Amino acid sequence: MITETKRFPAARRLAGVLAGSAVAALMAAAPVAQAQAQDITVGSKIDTEGALLGNMLMILLEDAGFTVDNKIQLGATSVVRQALIAGEIDIYPEYTGNGAFFFDRQGDQAWNNRGAGYELVSQLDAQENNLVWLTPAPANNTWALAVRQDVAAENDLETMEDFGAWVSGGGDAMLAASAEFVESPNALPAFQEAYGFELTDDQMLVLSGGDTAATIRAAAEQTNGTNTAMVYGTDGALSAVGLVVMEDTQGVQMVYEPAPVVRGEVLEEHPEIRDIIDPVFETLGLQTLQSLNAAIIVEGRDAGQVARSYLEEEGFIN
């Protein structure tokens, strides 16, 4: 529907009179340049992080000379994914772990390993859809436990091993979580089995729905004594309210690292896209994404402004 290329600069004004053969050559070349002067379409999901990363892609490509058609915050995962496959958009940020559902391979242990999951989804999408996954950001936006900063510092809590040992040793943990997180076999029960701890019913505040904003707020405000929250790894409110994500060192949860996915035809025609985008995503670690998301969610800043400020401050654009 919409194809891609760089924006061609306006032709320079010609001074004097050109020789007849030069004029003919110029006129013959003009239709070719016009045919190539088309857009690249950037999409994203409708959520906060989708808007942030989609704007980064759009700004980077525009800065590199591409004409960009803006389809940021196009819709939910299924909508944006189908738009990419159909060629209605050319690139958007997706999460590696979603490959398990795209290809109905939820039982594959590769999704629990950062490198293996990325390699598997890259291979499957290249073979079946001619889609290319660029370099993922080193930030896992999956289910996690986050502890109040004061409690984490007092008890030297950085990883789930630390957390499990603390709880098993009588640590006064109080978790705010959704019923799904508490009951789903691959959520809290999986964490407890892997890290050797068990929270009693008296140590859990179970909230309706799965909104992490509610669990984060409960832990931050110590509602009913809570000091731990069910979160997603890159939640924007975490850094703002002083919660520390416990690292899942055993890979209990599937890894959801954000990565740009681009149509193969687009990348084949413009291989420089990889060089433009990869260095930026390599800098988007967990705390960086938390901070950028917080600027949007907590401070109320526009996602495009936050994206541009980051790219300017890090020297990716002028």
Rank of each mutant, 00 (worst) to 15 (best):
V231E: 08
Q203V: 03
V261Q: 06
E247C: 06
A86L: 13
R81F: 11
A51P: 05
G210D: 12
D125L: 15
Y310P: 02
N318G: 13
F101R: 15
L74H: 10
V32T: 08
D150E: 08
R12W: 11
I317Q: 02
L292R: 02
A219W: 01
E247K: 06
Y232M: 11
N70I: 08
T223K: 11
D150M: 01
N55M: 10
T48F: 01
A177H: 08
Q38M: 14
T200V: 04
A153V: 14
E94C: 06
A295G: 13
E314C: 06
I296G: 07
G107A: 11
V182P: 00
S309L: 12
A303D: 02
A144D: 15
P271Y: 05
V241W: 03
P93D: 01
Q36L: 15
Q192K: 08
E88D: 14
L292V: 07
K45I: 13
D202K: 09
E128W: 14
V68I: 01
K6W: 13
D302R: 04
M56K: 07
V231T: 00
G285V: 06
M254D: 15
L26M: 14
I40D: 09
A64T: 00
F197G: 02
V266T: 07
K71R: 08
L207E: 02
A144H: 12
A51C: 08
Q253F: 01
S178F: 01
A137H: 05
L84S: 03
A152G: 03
E119S: 10
D125T: 05
T142I: 06
Q73W: 06
P189Y: 03
G107F: 12
I72A: 05
E158V: 15
G236K: 02
V132W: 04
I72W: 06
V306A: 07
G75M: 03
W111K: 01
L61T: 04
Q73I: 12
E62A: 04
T159A: 01
G75W: 02
G99Q: 05
A240V: 02
E49G: 09
L134C: 05
K45C: 11
P271G: 03
H270M: 07
N130H: 10
L207I: 12
A51W: 00
L120C: 02
G20D: 15
A33V: 04
N112M: 11
L207T: 10
L74I: 12
E183C: 05
L286K: 09
F281W: 06
A100V: 10
V262D: 03
T234N: 01
T41R: 06
P31S: 12
G54M: 02
A213Q: 14
T215Q: 05
Q123K: 14
W166R: 04
I85E: 00
E49S: 13
A295D: 15
V167I: 07
D90M: 04
A213M: 12
D278C: 02
A176C: 07
I216E: 03
Q109W: 14
W166F: 06
L286S: 09
R7E: 13
T67W: 13
D302V: 01
A100I: 09
L243R: 06
